[in-house]
């Protein structure tokens, strides 16, 4: 029995990083579910060190670790960075005899790693985001049966991570929830690069509900969410703020690129043909605000909302880019 995904993507580092970022697990506190798993691994494998590591851009970060101090190491010295390149375990009987690791500072110095067994933690879409590992101070051979057992534990770690993700997905649309969106906005705010925030509001949505019923309203939201997801790059996040208000966060996008995405989404929504409601025409207004280093997440959202208001004021079914760098409430305070 195996639950490893069929399509493994070892060479798509960009997609792998996006898959890890989408889990929103980096730098979160220790949690008992993962602590239990690493403790069980130390007991069952009779090793002094066990860890759930996640391989970030330039570091390995420990979601849970037994027998080691600290929360992270540089990625370049991480054994687990090698583990994530295959679907099966990496099994090192004596690191001092392995040319990849003999000079590794974790082998030549503290904690003097000698043997290592690591199983990749793989997402349902085939990205190895980290590893579950068992480490010993002395050379030893881990058996093929122990390898399979560690893979089973790693699969459970992935399931726990997926379970957390369910809570951040809106049940009706499959988009991120407001809570997850705000969390992502704050995370992107902290990055030193361009980013765009799109706020979308379906035009005359109340009239759709009144005329066609709430089932139609739900069908519209689901189809519109499909458009957003179809046009949502790996690096981006699409979410539902509430009711018929939706949003997209586009990290790394400048004004032109963001406007292009917004226009594509707007046109695609206007072209929607709902199977059960052929007479129903859906349009959306879109407001865009670019990230400014001086703002916090709340101010950024206010700017996008003000741009959306402008789009509504200009007749709806259009895109407006915020021209101001001052959020409306701050402008009022002056």
């Amino acid at each position: 029995m195996t639950s490893r995904p069929i399509k493994f993507r070892p060479d798509d580092e960009f997609g792998r990083q996006c898959a890890l970022d989408r889990l929103h697990v980096l730098d979160t506190p220790r949690e008992p579910e993962f602590e239990k798993i690493t403790r069980l691994v130390t007991t069952i494998f009779d090793v002094p060190i066990a860890a759930v590591t996640l391989i970030d851009r330039d570091r390995q970060w420990f979601k849970s670790v037994q027998g080691l101090d600290g929360t992270e190491t540089k990625r370049e010295i991480a054994f687990c960075d090698h583990t994530i390149r295959k679907t099966q375990c990496m099994n090192i009987a004596d690191a001092t005899l392995d040319p990849r690791f003999a000079d590794n500072p974790m082998v030549t110095g503290e904690p003097y790693i000698r043997s290592y067994l690591g199983a990749p933690i793989i997402t349902a879409d085939g990205y190895a985001i980290g590893a579950l590992c068992a480490i010993d101070y002395k050379p030893r051979s881990f058996s093929p049966e122990q390898e399979r057992m560690l893979v089973s534990f790693a699969d459970l770690v992935m399931n726990e991570l997926e379970l957390r993700q369910v809570a951040s997905v809106d049940a009706l649309t499959g988009l991120s929830t407001r809570r997850a969106l705000v969390q992502e906005i704050e995370a992107v705010m902290g990055q030193q690069r361009d980013a765009a925030l799109l706020f979308l509001d379906l035009d005359h949505f109340k009239a759709i509900n009144d005329r066609f019923g709430h089932a139609a309203g739900d069908a519209v939201l689901q189809d519109v969410a499909g458009v957003l997801l179809d046009n949502c790059p790996d690096i981006a996040t699409a979410g539902r703020l509430g009711g018929e208000e939706l949003a997209m966060i586009l990290p790394g996008y400048d004004e032109d690129a963001a406007q292009e995405v917004a226009e594509t989404v707007r046109r695609s929504i206007a072209a929607l043909a709902l199977v059960d409601y052929p007479d129903l025409v859906v349009t959306t207004s879109v407001g865009i605000a670019m990230r400014h280093a001086s703002h916090d997440g709340h101010a950024w959202m206010e700017m996008a909302d003000a741009a959306l208001y402008e789009a509504k004021r200009h007749g709806r079914n259009c895109v407006r880019l915020s021209q101001s760098v001052t959020p409306p409430t701050m402008a009022v305070q002056r």
Binding site: M1, V151, F153, D155, L156
Partner: peptide
């Protein structure tokens, strides 16, 4: 399914 798999491998 994964818990059953773990039992089997253990």
């Amino acid at each position: 399914e994964k818990v059953l798999n773990l039992v089997e491998t253990m």
